[in-house]
């Protein structure tokens, strides 16, 4: 089921513009993540698609050719996984999963068969008759997903499905969730503030800020070709290199850096992965912090940008805090982005 949003906006009664007028298309069967910091409008957008919020006048939402703009949530046939999972505490696991099927007034035998099928898919067989209180966080998440998916919804919506779990479990369940969503073969939209989660699960990611979609694209596309500084900062934690441009080079407080082109006014960003420590690098700074991260050291260097410029160093002997180091950045690794208007 494809989804088309045209001119969809949401203003709350107190005047807050949670979502600016937005046009978006989701293709049938793709998994899209809405990524952004809290308060960026991603959850509002998800709730508008679900039908849990009413959009402003002039908005239109279509599922394929079906206009659902005015359809209340109970008639939209969407599956939703809530951040807190919102499992019904008065029902067993099986009853939770069967609830949507019961609402469709299917015969009892078919409800049972379809619930069993989903329970098997989500590997919940041993827990079917348990009460919700007797489940772990990861099991609850799977029950929430199974409950949303059992009635065969047209689309699946997930609101921060992993944020209620502790960090160790989150990484494991992230891959599990991605695999399950692919097996479901359903159009899925999920909201997250965690870029790793978005990049790992989604086919496409929409980065949002202040009620606007800043950029939408594949994870690779967003990472390698951010179109605005915010996307570069939010996806992959790029930092800005400030300085004056002179003869095709950037003069930073730490030294001169070759630029790939100098045709227009832009901001220069770089990621820690692309900053290399090297004896004959053109930038110089003082090591402030060294953190061992298993596969590499994260070295924080002062004197080049405001604050610390981080370099990921893969050698076995890291520099020590206080050392003066030289660094180089390949010109093609620099991200040149149009200067951000500070109106928004």
């Amino acid at each position: 089921m494809s989804i088309a949003l045209k001119n969809v906006a949401k203003t709350y009664p107190d005047g807050t513009k949670a979502l600016q007028p937005t046009d978006l298309e989701f293709r049938a069967g793709e998994i899209v993540s809405l990524l952004g910091p809290s308060g960026c409008g991603k959850t509002t957008l998800l709730r508008l698609i679900a039908g849990l919020e009413r959009p402003d006048a002039g908005s239109s939402i279509h599922f394929d050719t079906d206009d659902v703009t005015r359809l209340p949530v109970e008639h939209r046939r969407v599956g939703m996984v809530f951040q807190s999972y919102a499992l019904f505490p008065n029902m067993s696991v099986l009853a939770n999963i069967s609830y949507g099927l019961k609402m469709q007034k299917l015969p009892a035998a078919e409800i049972r068969a379809r619930a069993d099928e989903v329970i098997k898919m989500c590997q919940l067989e041993p827990y079917a008759n348990r009460s919700i209180d007797a489940l772990s966080g990861g099991q609850r998440q799977r029950v929430a997903l199974a409950r949303a998916f059992a009635p065969r919804p047209r689309i699946l919506l997930l609101d921060e499905p992993l944020s209620a779990l502790d960090a160790a479990l989150r990484d494991k369940l992230r891959d599990e969730l991605a695999a399950l969503l692919r097996r479901f073969k359903i159009t899925a939209i999920f909201v997250t503030h965690d870029q790793d989660e978005a990049l790992a699960i989604a086919d496409r990611v929409a980065v949002m800020r202040n009620g606007r979609v800043m950029q939408i694209g594949t994870p690779e596309d967003l990472y390698h070709n951010p179109r605005v500084p915010f996307v570069a900062e939010f996806v992959g934690h790029a930092v800005e290199l400030c300085g004056t441009v002179e003869d095709g080079k950037l003069n930073t407080p730490g030294g001169r850096l070759a630029l790939p082109r100098t045709d227009a006014d832009y901001q220069v960003y770089v990621r820690a992965d692309d900053v290399k420590l090297s004896q004959d690098g053109s930038l110089r700074g003082t090591v402030e912090s060294v953190t061992f991260l298993g596969t590499h050291y994260r070295v924080g260097v002062s004197g080049v940008v405001q604050g610390l410029l981080y370099a990921n160093h893969t050698g076995t002997t890291p520099p020590k805090p206080g050392d003066t180091v030289r660094m180089e950045i390949a010109p093609e690794a620099l991200l040149l982005l149009p200067r951000e208007r500070h109106a928004a």
Partner: peptide, 17 residues
């Protein structure tokens, strides 16, 4: 004491009037 609104949203998304 419970998150009634979200529980109801969940039931509504499953088709409950």
């Amino acid at each position: 004491a419970m998150d009634l609104k979200t529980l109801e949203d969940a039931a509504a998304s499953l088709g409950a009037s």
